[in-house]
Design a binder for these strands. Sequence first.
DNA 1: CCATTTTTTCAGAAGTTTCTGTAATTTGTA
DNA 2: TACAAATTACAGAAACTTCTGAAAAAATGG
Lengths: 189, 189
Amino acid sequence: MKLSTKIEAFVSHFGEMGSRWGFNRTVGQMYALLMVYNRPLNADEISEMLSISRSNVSMGIKELHSWRLLKVTHYPGDRKEYYKAPEDIIEVARIVLEERHKREVAPTLTMLRQEIMREPVSDEGKHAQQRMTEIYELIDSVSKAVDEVAALSSKDLAKMMKLGSGVASVFNFKDRLLGKGKPDDGAAE
Amino acid sequence: MKLSTKIEAFVSHFGEMGSRWGFNRTVGQMYALLMVYNRPLNADEISEMLSISRSNVSMGIKELHSWRLLKVTHYPGDRKEYYKAPEDIIEVARIVLEERHKREVAPTLTMLRQEIMREPVSDEGKHAQQRMTEIYELIDSVSKAVDEVAALSSKDLAKMMKLGSGVASVFNFKDRLLGKGKPDDGAAE
DNA sequence: CCATTTTTTCAGAAGTTTCTGTAATTTGTA
DNA sequence: TACAAATTACAGAAACTTCTGAAAAAATGG
C-alpha cells in the first residue's frame, strides 16, 4: 500500500511540525494522512501506510479522539472501524483552537487569578503581582476573542477568509478609534 | 537568594507550560522570572534562583536571544550582563507570535505551495491536492490576519483590549455581511 | 456462550531532549 | 599584552518521551 508522493510529503512534514501543534510525530502523521486521503482508513491500513506498529496506531487514535478530531465510519460486513478527519477544514481548526485553549491557556489563567489574589508581602511580590495582572489581562482578552471567533460558523469564517477582511474590520475600528481621539491620549496605561 | 512564593508559582507554572509555547522547561522558567522580577538579573543570579547550572542558563539565554525576547543592560563597574523582558508585555506577545509564525507556519505554507503546484498523477493525489489547497488557504488567511494584528502598535492593541472589542468589530462585520446578503447565499463554496 | 476478530493496555526497549561540569573562548581592564 | 572575569561549547549523564511486541480485554457473530 504505497502513498502518492504528494501525500508522503504532506504526512512527513506534519510529522515533523506535529509536536509544535501539541501532539507527537506519529499522531501528526496519522492526522495528516486522514485529512488528505480520499476515503476513511482503518487502523491496520494506517499502520501499514505509515510503517508504524498497530499498537502505536491504537494509542494515536485514542489521542486524536481526546482532541475530538476523528469521525468514525463503519462499512457493512466489515467489523473494523474506519477513521477520517471532518470534511470541513475550518471545523478542524476550530476544534484544535478550542482544545489548545482548554489545555494550555485556561490553566494559566487560573494560576494567575490565584496568585494575583494573594496579598503581596514584599516589594518583589508587589511588582510581580503588577506584572502578572498585565499578563492576565492580555491573555484573558485574547481568550475571549478566540472564544468569540470559534463561536462563528464555518460558513461565516469562510466568507471572511474569502474577502480577506477578518482583519480589515479591525483596521476600520482602529481608524475610528484613533481618528477621533485626542492625539496625545495615547499612553497604554 | 529566595524567591517570593508568588514568583515561585508563576515560574514553576511557566516551566510546565513552557514546552507548549515552543521552548523547554528551563527556558520557560527563566523567562517567567525575567518577566516578573523587579530588576534585571545576571546569569549567575538566574542560575542560583532557579537552581540550574550556569551553563544551562547560558544556553537558555542564547535561546531567548534567538527569540528576540531579551533586553540587556549593564551597570557601571560591573562587567556582567543583566537581562530583562521588555516592559511592554504586548510587545512580548507580538514577538512570540511573529517568531512562532516564522518557525512553524511559514515552512508549512512553503511545503503546501510546492505540493499543490505538482500535477497530481492519481485520484488519491488529486483529492490530496484539493484538501491541501483548502488547508493552504485557511493557514494563509490566518497568517495574514496575524501579520496585520502584529503590525498594530501596542498602544492600539491595549486600547482594543481595554474596550474588549477587538472582536466586536468582527461581529459588526459579520452582521453587515449576513444581514444584507441573500439569506440563502450561504454555501461555503 | 464459545471461537474468532479486533482493539487496547502495558512493560520495557529505543530514541530524543535536556542538563551538567569541564574546558575552551571571549571580553574587558590595567 | 597579560590577567582575570565572564561567557560559551560540548561530551556524556540523566531524564523524559515515544514506540513496539506480547498479552489481556472487548466486541461480534454463529
